[in-house]
Design a protein around this nucleic acid. Sequence first.
DNA 1: CCTTGTGAATATGTTCACAGCA
DNA 2: TGCTGTGAACATATTCACAAGG
Lengths: 219, 219
Amino acid sequence: MTNNHSTDTKNDIPDIVIGRLPIYLRTLKLLQSEGKEVASSQELGERLGISSAQIRKDLSHFGEFGKQGTGYNVAYLCSQLEKILKVDCIWPVVLVGAGYLGHALASYNGFEDRGFRIVAVFDTDPEKLGKRVGPLRVEHPRAIPDYVRSHKCQIAIIAVPAEAAQEVANTLIEAGIKSILCYAPITLTVPKEIRVEYIDPVIHFQHMTYYLEKHCLDE
Amino acid sequence: MTNNHSTDTKNDIPDIVIGRLPIYLRTLKLLQSEGKEVASSQELGERLGISSAQIRKDLSHFGEFGKQGTGYNVAYLCSQLEKILKVDCIWPVVLVGAGYLGHALASYNGFEDRGFRIVAVFDTDPEKLGKRVGPLRVEHPRAIPDYVRSHKCQIAIIAVPAEAAQEVANTLIEAGIKSILCYAPITLTVPKEIRVEYIDPVIHFQHMTYYLEKHCLDE
DNA sequence: CCTTGTGAATATGTTCACAGCA
DNA sequence: TGCTGTGAACATATTCACAAGG
């Protein structure tokens, strides 16, 4: 038996470990779809560019999922990770912003398999109101509070221009949203109990260029 | 004077520090646009949810940019960070994939201000060939090698379905691409000198749900 | 054999706290 | 006084290396 989790309220497991679990899950599901039934920490590590020891240690925080001499049963480990991450169900997500990015997100059909569904789209632009975005219709942001409360949504995506993002965040938080995925290139100011994660491709590009040789167009 | 950098070939500065510089830059530019001329590490830290000591220490790797008693000159620090990150110019980026996401990326006009321009779009779909995507026209991927070489592109975006991503990556790397931003939900296998960064919203969602209370739709 | 799970050792990252300068 | 830059102290994360099990 592993260390007992009897006194686990929650936060003794490092956030950085939690952050890797979705990667493991994504890869295990791929292995599963390739028909692989068993995988060792080494195989998984090679696939991911991570050491096998790290994978074993990460998993050991939650239990003993492997078999010595064999490795991990792929389907079983998948199901365990889904349970740990609470993605053995579908979470409703609201989307604010019906521009190109909003369309891309609302039309993407890779969410459901992994535990999420975009259930509503909001945008202030009167031109867009009532128009189709993926399988949904654009609603006015004034409908956000009622919608979020009645559907018990806890997750929102912000896909509006930077100038509007903070105000949208305030509205969402006021409505009861607990976690935000922000595509606007700005750091939001939020109460500490609200979790915000960011996606900004330029941050990645600027990280890359540090290591590249400068062969670029003049400004 | 700071520690001398005379023997800096490159890699004594931790990657995690480099990764924060783009965030600092993004925020400093915002402060600048708000008319702020000077900012202390504390102000910046509060805005970002980072300790002031960390910001000072991060910057100290590259030189002494501040003034005691005053703080940092915003415009000056911006220009220094741009120089360090090599984004005081425009880098050409090629995009593979002209689906909804490709359209969103190609149409986004927030790249140029921050050092990047999407200069070409490729997609295998014959339906899309020659069609407009943002300001560009879709070309066949067979044109990738010539294009990348003649335009000295070092950065590419992969915005194709997961099944096609590895093959696209191989083509790009063969053509001379050095860094890839991958939107496909898959870990690519690449030579160690190639840098790959990933954007997958579901990874963020699954990280969030660990901390949320489970109130979700049944599977 | 091969591979897990895990303490101990190492490596890396962050914060403290203060000297020194404007 | 108010802030930077920075060693030293502390905290966190990763890897090593091996006992134990199939």
